[in-house]
């Protein structure tokens, strides 16, 4: 008697568990469709023929892999790649290098006005870039003659980037004081402490902030539109992609093929650096 009762209770919880499992996973599959289908349709259109791309067909009749080659060989496409890499690469190196000492000082030094300073960093981080664009454009274009290049976008990163400072500081706060103090007692100067002790410990945060910055630059459309639009030799992928549809007189298949080629590297990098990413996002919102 007692045995059977026990058994039925287990099977009851078991079936409740199974039901729960099914419900959760059915929901997850449904959600996946919402996230994956757009990618799928973009890809399927990218390999359609010119004639088919303007029809209501969902599945390609012939697989035109050559569309990717056509896009790749579009005059300018390689230049856009090079410019984007320059903007994102150099911008990221500069931003991380210049932000790290600032973040360290804000996290570990005691000085008057530190909180005010932190508030200013957060305010700058939240400042929409469009607010100051008019004087900034006049400054770079009229005074420094750098319109038509990406330098107005890259150079400011040599002077600290608010978001990078914020992110690094949030992480540096979590490093126990004992480590830095031990280094100091050993006679290390602050700069050496930062480079020898803090940087190795902060590697994940540095990687995360570098990735964020890299993608920010990679995705940026507003900046290149303002500063580089007048010189096709300085266009980036994001800006060039938009002009692709008009200037190169194409239809949806080639436009979608170009879209795939712009999305692909981001996704590849993500697969290699997934962990750093997720940690980074968490750091912006949760810790602190």
């Amino acid at each position: 008697m007692t045995r059977t009762m026990k058994m039925s209770r287990t099977s009851q919880t078991l079936s409740r568990g199974a039901l729960h499992w099914i419900a959760v996973h059915a929901l997850a599959v449904a959600a996946s469709l919402f996230f994956v289908l757009p990618f799928l349709f973009v890809f399927l259109t990218a390999v359609m023929s010119d004639d088919q791309a303007l029809t209501r067909d969902l599945w390609p009749r012939t697989w035109e892999w050559g569309n990717f080659g056509t896009v790749w060989e579009t005059p300018g496409f390689l230049t856009w790649w090079r410019n984007t890499l320059l903007y994102a690469g150099l911008g990221t190196v500069l931003a991380v290098c210049s932000s790290l000492p600032v973040a360290y000082a804000l996290a570990k030094f005691r000085f008057r006005g530190r909180n005010v300073m932190m508030m200013v960093v957060i305010a700058a981080m939240m400042l929409p870039p469009q607010v100051i664009i008019v004087p900034m454009y006049l400054f770079w274009a009229k005074q420094l003659d750098l319109a038509g290049t990406l330098w107005p976008l890259i150079i400011p990163f040599a002077f600290g980037n608010a978001f990078t400072i914020f992110l690094l500081r949030q992480f540096l706060l979590t490093i126990p004081k004992e480590y830095t103090e031990a280094a100091r007692i050993d006679g290390c100067g602050e700069l050496r402490t930062l480079l020898r002790v803090v940087v190795p410990m902060a590697k994940p945060a540095i990687a995360a902030s570098a990735l964020f910055h890299f993608f920010y630059c990679w995705n940026d459309y507003f900046g290149p539109q303002i500063y580089a639009s007048e010189n096709p030799g300085a266009w980036t992928l994001s800006y060039g992609l938009e002009s692709f549809k008009g200037a190169h007189q194409t239809d949806w298949n080639l436009t979608m093929a170009a879209t795939v080629l712009v999305m692909a590297p981001v996704i590849v990098v993500f697969f290699f650096a997934q962990k750093a990413f997720v940690e980074g996002v968490t750091l912006t919102g949760v810790k602190g």
């Binding site: 454009y137 006049l138 274009a141 009229k142 003659d145 750098l146 319109a147 038509g148 290049t149 639009s229 007048e230 010189n231």
Partner: peptide
């Protein structure tokens, strides 16, 4: 945009 600013690229 370019006419407003002049410069070497203009």
């Amino acid at each position: 945009q370019a006419l407003r600013t002049g410069g070497s690229q203009a």
